[in-house]
Amino acid sequence: MTQDYKRFLQPDALSRISRLEIQARDVVEGFLTGHHRSPYFGQSIEFVQHREYVAGDDTRRIDWKAWSKTDKYYIKQYEEETNLRTTILLDRSESMQFGSGKTSKFDYGCSIASALSYLLLKQQDAVGMTLFDEKTQVRIPIRSQQNHLGSILTVLATQIPGEKTDLGKVLQQTGHEHRRRGLIVLISDLFGPRDALFKGLKLLRFLGHDVMLFQTLDDQEIDFSFNGTTKFVGLEGAGEVTCDPKSLRVGYLEALEKFQDEIRRFCSAQMVDYQVVRTSSKLDAVLAHYMKHRLGMGVKS
């Protein structure tokens, strides 16, 4: 399992992340600590309520007194002092399986998710994760403990993409499940019906969430530099085309650009942070963008 962690947190990436940690801490702590009371629940002195235990909860937090009376596991919840609750939504559909180089889009998405989780946990922020395709397949609760990263990486290492996407449904579900305001990070190629996507994003924004959109694309999807007669077989059952790619390249790029423009315009209108990420680019660029976004959140507040 240790080996699998390294799939997503390569040493050089971790090194870069460590350097970022200082900056991140400055950003997070300097910006939020002592300025306001957190509206979210967390682990602190002041008790708030009980909640039924779910797998993954820290067993130390089980209220054994309540168990002795009710014979059920309950977790004691306290008023939280953490700064941020972040939910990472990672697309694990079949289309994310594509990758012209060593890294598929899903692998790269996992790396983003891992790095963000590491950074957030380092900053004592709470992070949770949802892996989805046409529905939510795995949900990792939001935690701020340092060992929570292990749970996240374990889950990521066992995932194999393979179903169709239904972004709209997943986003709506997320909205319903995460009533408390926080940061929603969506990592996906966004290939799917635009209307459903936009509808889901609108809901999240309506619920007060900050939303970051990392559209993960492969180099070939962006550049479309295939050579020779090629039979393209669509993932997620999108049909087949046998053609000379060069003859279709211009048309393809135009269609892609139109698609991205559409998203960009929507995100701009809804104040959703939208970032296209190449699978060949370095992770620190993604994190830098995230940090920029955090600064932006402070301004918006």
Partner: peptide
Amino acid sequence: YQRVKFAAMEFLLASQKRN
């Protein structure tokens, strides 16, 4: 031909229709 499983078929199909 080479066979490629491809994700962004939506755009490829649109281009093929045009060209």
